[in-house]
Amino acid sequence: MNAWKDIGIEVGVGDKGERAANAWALLHEIEGMLDELLNNDKESSIDLRGIPMSAADRTVLERVLGEGELTARITALGLSQVRETAIHGVWWVTHYNTEDTVVAEFLEVSSCPDMLRSHADDIRDTLENLRTQLAQHQE
């Protein structure tokens, strides 16, 4: 399906007078979310695909939030990237499908996004796997 990308179609919307009003509104919302995280330990997130954003909005959002210290790549049903921004506690989470198309994008306000945590069920299952290998080694 990647061949679609090779077809030379250019789509123009026409309105070049883009403003970044949505980005600043989002940044104010993030400020409040960080307060909630610090004071009440409440995690929250913003679905970026649900918000109409111009290219200017996106540029402002990326510039103000900046690059943080940590980026994690997760391979689960295609790639997911979890990147902490320069504003600690604000994580930019991007989900791709197996053909590297973005299928969902979130800003998560959390000390550690759920996607990074190991789940108890998975720990239990893989612990069994480890024990099986240990048992085989002892035989």
């Binding site: 649900g50 689960a76 997911s80 299928v103 969902a104």
Partner: peptide, 27 residues
Amino acid sequence: LRRHGISRRAFLKFCAVTASAMALPPG
């Protein structure tokens, strides 16, 4: 899902993508 090798992370991703497509609240 676990029996078929699908991790909790993968399932979380599936649910997050589906919820986003349905414009359900974040989270």
